[in-house]
C-alpha cells in the first residue's frame, strides 16, 4: 500500500493546504457577512436611493459565476496576491447569499416589537442594534451554517488563481503517486467532510448557547 505511505508522508502538505483554505474561508465569510448585512439593512431600512444601490449590487453579485469573479479580481491591475483575490471574489459572491439570509431573518422579527421600541422613544439605529440584530443573529445561524459549508467547498475554486489550498496540494501530490489519483481525491473528499462536520458542530453549539425560549429550535 504505497499510496497510504505517500499520503501519510504528505500530511504536512495537506495541513498547510487546509490552513490556507481556512484562511480563505474565514476571510470570505467575514467579508460576505459585513457586506451582506450592510446590503440587507440598506434594502430594508434605507431610503429609496440607498435601497436601489443595494438591490442592484446584490443582483449583480448574485448573477456572476464565482469563477468569473475570481479571474476578474485576480487580473485587476492591482497586483493582488492570490489569497486576497480569492477572499475578495468569493466574499463578494457570498455577500449576495448572506444578505438574503439576513433579510429573511430581519423580516421575521415581529413588527410589534419594533413598534414597541419606537413607542418607548428608541431611535432607529438603536432599534436595529438592540432589537433587530440580536434576534436576527439567532434566526440566521441555521441558514448561515449552510452557507458556511457551501463556501468551505467553494474555497477549492481558489486554486484556479494559484492559491495553494487543498486541491492545489492534491495536484502536486498526484504528480508522483503513479496512477493512484482517485485515492488522493478520496482522501481530499474525506478531509472536506471532516472539516464540514467540525464546523457544523461548532455552529450548532453556538446556536444552542444563544437559544432562548421563543426561538425555533432545529431538530
Amino acid at each position: 500500500m504505497e499510496i497510504i505511505r505517500i499520503l501519510i508522508s504528505e500530511l504536512p502538505q495537506f495541513a498547510k493546504g487546509t490552513l490556507i483554505a481556512l484562511e480563505v474561508l474565514a476571510g470570505l465569510l467575514a467579508l460576505g457577512l459585513v457586506l451582506g448585512l450592510a446590503i440587507a439593512l440598506a434594502e430594508i431600512f434605507g431610503n429609496t436611493v440607498v435601497k436601489f444601490f443595494a438591490t442592484t449590487l446584490r443582483k449583480f453579485l448574485w448573477a456572476i459565476p464565482q469563477l468569473v469573479l475570481l479571474f476578474l479580481v485576480f487580473y485587476l491591475p492591482f497586483d493582488l496576491n492570490p489569497v486576497c483575490a480569492a477572499i475578495i471574489a468569493l466574499g463578494l459572491c457570498s455577500s449576495a447569499f448572506q444578505s438574503q439570509i439576513f433579510r429573511g431573518a430581519i423580516l421575521s422579527v415581529q413588527s410589534g416589537q419594533i413598534e414597541a421600541a419606537k413607542a418607548m422613544g428608541l431611535s432607529k439605529p438603536k432599534i436595529i442594534f438592540y432589537i433587530v440584530i440580536p434576534q436576527m443573529i439567532r434566526l440566521s445561524i441555521g441558514p448561515w451554517t449552510n452557507e458556511f459549508s457551501s463556501e468551505l467547498k467553494d474555497t477549492s475554486l481558489a486554486y484556479v488563481v494559484g492559491v495553494v489550498e487543498i486541491m492545489r496540494q492534491a495536484k502536486y501530490i498526484i504528480a508522483y503517486t503513479f496512477g493512484n489519483t482517485a485515492a488522493v481525491y478520496l482522501f481530499v473528499g474525506v478531509l472536506y467532510f471532516m472539516l464540514t462536520r467540525i464546523g457544523t458542530y461548532f455552529f450548532y453549539k453556538l446556536e444552542e448557547r444563544l437559544w432562548v425560549p421563543g426561538f425555533e429550535k432545529r431538530s
Partner: peptide, 13 residues
C-alpha cells in the same frame, strides 16, 4: 404605551 398584544422583546428576559 401598552399594546393589546404585549410586544415584549422575546430575546430578553
Amino acid at each position: 404605551f401598552v399594546f393589546q398584544d404585549f410586544n415584549l422583546f422575546i430575546h430578553l428576559s
